[in-house]
Measured scan of single mutants.
Amino acid sequence: MGFKLLSKLLVYLTASIMAIASPLAFSVDSSGEYPTVSEIPVGEVRLYQIADGVWSHIATQSFDGAVYPSNGLIVRDGDELLLIDTAWGAKNTAALLAEIEKQIGLPVTRAVSTHFHDDRVGGVDVLRAAGVATYASPSTRRLAEVEGNEIPTHSLEGLSSSGDAVRFGPVELFYPGAAHSTDNLIVYVPSASVLYGGCAIYELSRTSAGNVADADLAEWPTSIERIQQHYPEAQFVIPGHGLPGGLDLLKHTTNVVKAHTNRSVVE
């Protein structure tokens, strides 16, 4: 069995187990497998329904001669939608809004960016022009300005110390501490036991640490421990890039980060 097929099978099995364990909360999309990078042309966006009122959005972007996937989250909030992270750029984010209108038909009224990198804030200006209120932590807003990236308009308070959590509509926002970046936030959907790890969490097929220019490698494993301790009931975990899975993604990420750190020390 090929690795790609095995990865998709694991996603399907995880979703099936969740649907059985929580039949009222989960209505997993039966329309197909989780979209992969090879299936999404740059400039297009796919939506994948995880649970009743919960979707991931998947886009792709060219970077350094390669094409990478990027995940975000959409959560229903009454007759409105909360968006977590842009679709990595203005063109993708405009396509995301169009796809949401086509498939869901509810307005996106608020959006949260989970850290300051372009795959999370690139497209904020498109959201703002569409009347979406954009939010991020003060740290993310400051770092985005320093980096020359787009800056969300509103500040999220109460997320300055490791372990801080605040309720934001249908989700809980959690600051686990520094990891992929010093400002990275985690998003949890309690009604569906869905954990969105953003770039602080890796997919299972990833074996290298990737972009760690703004990471705190020493603190990252401790931050992941905080996530595990705060959300032990999480059933569906979405990484910032690639295929979702279960809580095993947290341990896998820790292993990859520690291996990278150990290699760096040896070198």
Rank of each mutant, 00 (worst) to 15 (best):
S193H: 12
V37Y: 15
T93G: 00
L9T: 14
A51N: 10
T261Y: 11
E145K: 14
E157P: 11
A144H: 04
G43M: 04
E157V: 12
V37P: 15
I186F: 07
A192E: 09
F116C: 04
I224R: 01
D118K: 06
L127W: 00
V266P: 14
H115P: 04
A111M: 10
V121A: 05
C199T: 02
P221V: 11
H117Y: 04
S62H: 07
V187Q: 01
G158H: 11
D52Q: 10
V187M: 05
G240F: 04
I74E: 02
A209W: 06
G242C: 06
D85Y: 02
E44Q: 12
D164P: 05
A94C: 05
P244W: 06
V28R: 09
L10H: 15
A90S: 11
G2M: 07
A51G: 09
A90D: 14
D52F: 10
S155Y: 07
A259R: 13
V67M: 15
G158Q: 08
T207E: 15
E145P: 05
W55I: 01
L24K: 13
A213N: 11
G65P: 06
P23N: 10
A95R: 12
R110D: 02
H115I: 03
L159A: 01
S181F: 00
A129C: 02
P176M: 01
V257D: 02
D85S: 00
G89P: 04
G65M: 08
E219R: 07
A129K: 12
A59S: 15
A59I: 11
S62M: 08
S30W: 08
G2L: 13
S22I: 10
E39W: 09
P232G: 11
A59H: 07
L97M: 09
A95G: 08
D164M: 11
E219H: 09
D64M: 09
K8I: 11
S16R: 10
S27K: 11
V42Q: 12
S7L: 08
N184P: 01
R120T: 01
E225T: 11
K91E: 15
V75W: 01
H154M: 10
H241S: 00
Y188K: 00
N71E: 00
P239S: 03
L82G: 01
L5S: 15
V54S: 03
S16G: 15
V112Q: 03
A259V: 10
A87D: 00
I201M: 07
T253I: 07
A218L: 14
Q103H: 15
S181C: 03
L127A: 03
G240A: 05
R142Q: 13
I104V: 08
Q49K: 13
L83C: 03
L97Q: 01
V45K: 01
A192G: 10
V28I: 14
G148P: 02
L185D: 02
D125T: 09
T253G: 00
S22T: 12
E39D: 13
G198V: 05
L250V: 04
P152S: 05
S160D: 14
D52Y: 09
Y135F: 11
H252E: 00
V171G: 01
F26V: 14
T134W: 01
P239I: 01
S161D: 13
M18I: 15
E145A: 14
I17V: 11
T253C: 00
M18D: 12
V265I: 12
G32I: 09
I238W: 01
S30L: 11
V45A: 08
V187T: 03
D79P: 09
R263H: 12
S113G: 05
T222K: 12
S31V: 11
G123P: 04
V126L: 09
A200F: 03
W220R: 04
D216C: 03
V237D: 02
G2V: 08
R110I: 08
G72V: 02
R120A: 05
E39A: 14
S264I: 12
